[in-house]
Amino acid sequence: MRDEVLVINVMAPEGDYFEGNDLLRVMVASGMRFGEMNIFHYHEGGGADGAVIFSLANIVVPGVFDLAQMEEFATPGVSLFLALPVEGEAIKAFDQLLSTAYTIAKLLGGELKDENRSVFTAQTAEHYRQRVMEYQRRRALAMAQN
């Protein structure tokens, strides 16, 4: 069974950028921690040592951050992504992802976009939630057949 990846982009207003220092401050305030692969991660329980629940990368390829360069750094957006299966409850993980994305957007004055960079609506969130539940159902079915 293939993994499911849910992506929520937080974009700066058209023609604008998120400044590195602002981004860093907001990441830490949102419970994200810099780590493996030079991106930010949200860990189970919001600490730094639990399992990674979801991650955040720079929307600009190669997607990484250089903490030493954050003062000069700016980006048009960031991508939060949740890869299923995940430690713990998938729906709770998705809800935390969504909540964190909203918080980051609010604090940075950005807007949420889906994986295709279309406007992220309540309907989009519901569609993502259905994807999580469908993934869980297929996974339970696959496990029952083994």
Results as ranks from 00 to 15, higher is better:
102 Y>N: 13
126 E>N: 12
7 V>F: 06
134 E>W: 02
80 L>D: 05
84 L>M: 04
8 I>R: 06
110 G>V: 07
12 A>P: 08
139 R>V: 08
111 E>V: 10
67 L>N: 01
53 I>H: 05
93 A>D: 07
43 H>T: 12
69 Q>D: 12
129 R>F: 03
37 M>H: 11
11 M>E: 15
50 G>K: 03
120 F>D: 04
124 T>R: 12
6 L>K: 08
55 S>G: 10
75 T>D: 07
110 G>M: 09
44 E>V: 01
62 P>Y: 08
40 F>V: 01
7 V>H: 04
10 V>G: 09
120 F>T: 04
20 G>P: 01
42 Y>H: 13
129 R>E: 13
48 A>I: 07
90 A>Q: 06
6 L>T: 05
9 N>D: 11
11 M>A: 14
85 P>R: 03
90 A>M: 06
57 A>G: 07
13 P>C: 00
135 Y>P: 02
38 N>T: 07
16 D>Q: 15
8 I>K: 04
13 P>L: 00
144 A>K: 14
1 M>W: 10
136 Q>R: 15
117 R>A: 09
55 S>A: 11
3 D>N: 15
86 V>S: 05
50 G>M: 05
18 F>G: 04
31 G>E: 10
41 H>C: 09
17 Y>V: 14
140 A>T: 08
21 N>K: 13
29 A>L: 13
112 L>T: 05
106 K>P: 00
69 Q>I: 00
127 H>I: 06
27 M>D: 00
40 F>Y: 15
134 E>N: 13
61 V>C: 01
139 R>D: 13
126 E>G: 06
99 S>H: 11
76 P>I: 00
117 R>S: 11
23 L>D: 02
27 M>Y: 03
80 L>E: 04
26 V>G: 01
106 K>I: 02
141 L>C: 11
58 N>L: 09
102 Y>M: 13
123 Q>C: 00
63 G>C: 03
129 R>K: 13
137 R>Q: 14
90 A>R: 03
38 N>I: 03
130 Q>E: 15
51 A>Y: 01
44 E>F: 09
28 V>M: 11
96 Q>F: 00
47 G>D: 13
72 E>Y: 00
24 L>F: 06
20 G>H: 09
40 F>L: 08
74 A>H: 13
108 L>S: 06
52 V>S: 11
114 D>K: 07
90 A>C: 01
108 L>F: 05
146 N>H: 10
43 H>M: 12
67 L>G: 02
86 V>T: 12
85 P>S: 05
64 V>E: 15
135 Y>L: 10
124 T>S: 12
113 K>Q: 15
87 E>P: 11
121 T>K: 10
2 R>K: 12
